[in-house]
Nucleic acid binder design. Structure first.
Lengths: 357, 357
DNA sequence: CCTTAAGAATAAATCGGTTTACATTTGAAA
DNA sequence: TTTCAAATGTAAACCGATTTATTCTTAAGG
């Protein structure tokens, strides 16, 4: 709430003070070497003396793009995208860019507007984590505006942009093999039918792998279309008449709901039923039992996306225009107390697949 | 990865196409009324025809500040600051600004650099959530650069900037009164001695209120200086020889650790020991028992900070330079299963205060 | 019909840098 | 000492808008 009386120093003020031209100051500041050492010294002294800081936005005015990278995520509240943003911020700065973070708030319409915003801001490149998939409105607009970019997370592959995502299918298959090894023959997958394809991919990959390596494994899929609110009720209803030896939750909150539902109905975990979750988080190591989970390599995701984008930005005039790359980052499995060898066999129940409303 | 062949249309192109001057186009676009309707129509038609979008950064070049508001938070991974950022993003856009979100990654040195970045970006105002407090490096630099701003969250009051924070003391006192009412006479507070003063404020306010309204209440304070890793061990050690009727966790993760530690040692919650946490989150309603918690009014915090900042920006030339305002937003209490009336009295133990290493 | 003031439109300056095109030094070879 | 190329330096154009100072219209009043 203070009024700034003194006008900010410009590059011309520095030039005058140093006794050289503005062009020379510009060269010195950008590290161009064709400047006599004596003059460079004078410029540095002047800059120091008057505390000059150049305006990075004005600097980019003459270029076609500015030293800015755009990041569009579906939400900022989740740990996942928060970590992505935090990591990318560091990477961008190390590369001399500043990161402009915006959230589409899970709205495709907004996603489209944000893509346009990145365009008018003349960002050097945009990393888009689409609300739905690589076929959403945002990606389309990016293409039609010929923007440089990369896609991340809820994405499979694209003809134009490089894509970087977690290997959902591979991780699910790995869990399937693990559960089979541990003797589990009755698994329940729980998931939410979101706009994002991720959860569905996880489910189908699990089923396929299970089918292949262990045909006698019963796999129930509890996939709810509705809002989360009813999720617990559906699960509870299911557990009234079904007794899986292990539950594999395909989304983070489901893991928590399953754990608390076990407790509510007096099921001991892992003695009565094991639990594995997709997506690891801090609290899973402090619950009792600590929960086994698929760990998504969030930092690596960000690293890879960033390097793909940078390649796109810097190799702009690369005539080859090589085909886009589709990168899948493998997940690791964090084993904790909630998953054990299958308990002694109980009377077999009839296979059954519940498909939510 | 596509190269953009066609140069972007500028305001001059639009002017030429519409058969008027650039100045006229500028007026039409900014809604200045001294333009003949016929010309305005032509401009709009031309804009539409060539898909012109003005460059918001070039537009602000001539002004002393741009239509940008800066937001500096200590981290982006937490739900708390994620929600703050998400809310402010919406508010800023509604007011015609765009929000530039950056994270200081809990580093005061970085916080300082980010304040400087906001300055060179010539933002209209900056909302700073300091790493430490209003007396940190970032706030100091903001003052010495005469920047417009507002402080949020880890902050009490300031002579220059308006401050907006949660009423930590009030909430703690409210919990103290509630626990007293419910008959609890042995409470354990658990907290982490962070750089932020928040947790310490919560502890001392609780003690003071307890002292006042219920002098016979025993209040143990378990405040750990070290990293979180050892926290669980300290708590476990404490519970070996102490039997509080309720634990009040002063930070979110502590709530989870307490809950799981209860289970590990076979303490039934809430029958054997009640639990209340500071800072509510999604998972607390799905655990068993569901956890009672102090709900921080995150959105309101953001709303208030934003309106204070906007007042600062727009009332810039307000000669009165009214004293800064210190706003405390009250918290509510979400009662769930984990807190009950005090169980039948057990043999009294000797009062004791444990102060972590 | 002539003045004159308000109303509209615009050329040019400006913001703070970069880049270009050209001028001036410098230094080594002739 | 002369010559020419390489090394340095700079004025001016430029980026894409806004704003100012000025000119050109228009319309009311005498």
């Amino acid at each position: 709430m203070i009024s700034q009386p003194t006008k900010r120093a410009s590059i011309h003020d520095v030039a005058r003070s140093a006794g050289v031209s503005a062009a020379t100051v510009s060269k010195v500041l950008r590290g161009v070497t064709t400047v006599k050492a004596a003059n460079a010294q004078k410029v540095h002294a002047a800059v120091e003396a008057m505390g000059y800081k150049m305006d990075p936005l004005a600097a980019g005015l003459r270029q076609t793009t500015r030293k800015i990278i755009g990041l569009i995520v579906p939400d900022l509240e989740s740990e996942f995208f928060g970590k992505i943003a935090a990591r990318l911020e560091i990477l961008a700065e190390e590369a001399g860019y500043s990161l402009s973070i915006v959230s589409s708030h899970e709205s495709e319409a907004r996603e489209e507007r944000l893509v346009e915003r990145m365009h008018v801001w003349r960002v050097a490149g945009t990393i888009l984590a689409p609300v739905r998939s690589e076929r959403g409105a945002g990606t389309q607009l990016m293409k039609s505006l010929s923007m440089t970019g990369a896609l991340i997370d809820r994405v499979v592959s694209d003809d134009i942009y490089d894509t970087v995502a977690v290997d959902n299918a591979g991780a699910s298959a790995k869990v399937a093999r693990l559960l089979a090894e541990k003797g589990h023959r009755h698994v329940t997958l729980i998931g939410l039918n979101e706009v994002s394809r991720n959860v569905r991919t996880r489910a189908s990959a699990f089923k396929q792998e299970a089918q292949t390596i262990c045909p006698d494994m019963r796999v129930d899929v509890l996939m709810i279309d509705e809002r989360e609110d009813n999720f617990r009720a559906h699960l509870s209803n299911y557990l009234d008449t079904n007794y899986p030896s292990v539950v594999f939750s395909l989304f983070q909150k489901g893991t928590l709901i399953a754990l608390s539902e076990f407790r509510r109905r007096g099921l001991r975990c892992p003695q009565d039923v094991s639990l594995v979750g997709f997506d690891d988080t801090e609290w899973m190591q402090v619950t009792y039992p600590a929960v086994s989970a698929v760990v998504q390599p969030i930092s690596k995701l960000a690293d890879h996306a960033f390097h793909r984008l940078l390649a796109g930005i810097e190799g702009q005039r690369d005539g080859t225009n090589s085909a886009s790359i589709c990168h899948l980052e493998p997940c690791s499995l964090q084993l904790r107390e909630s998953l054990v060898e299958v308990p002694p066999v109980r009377p077999a129940e009839q296979p059954q697949v519940i498909q939510g409303a």
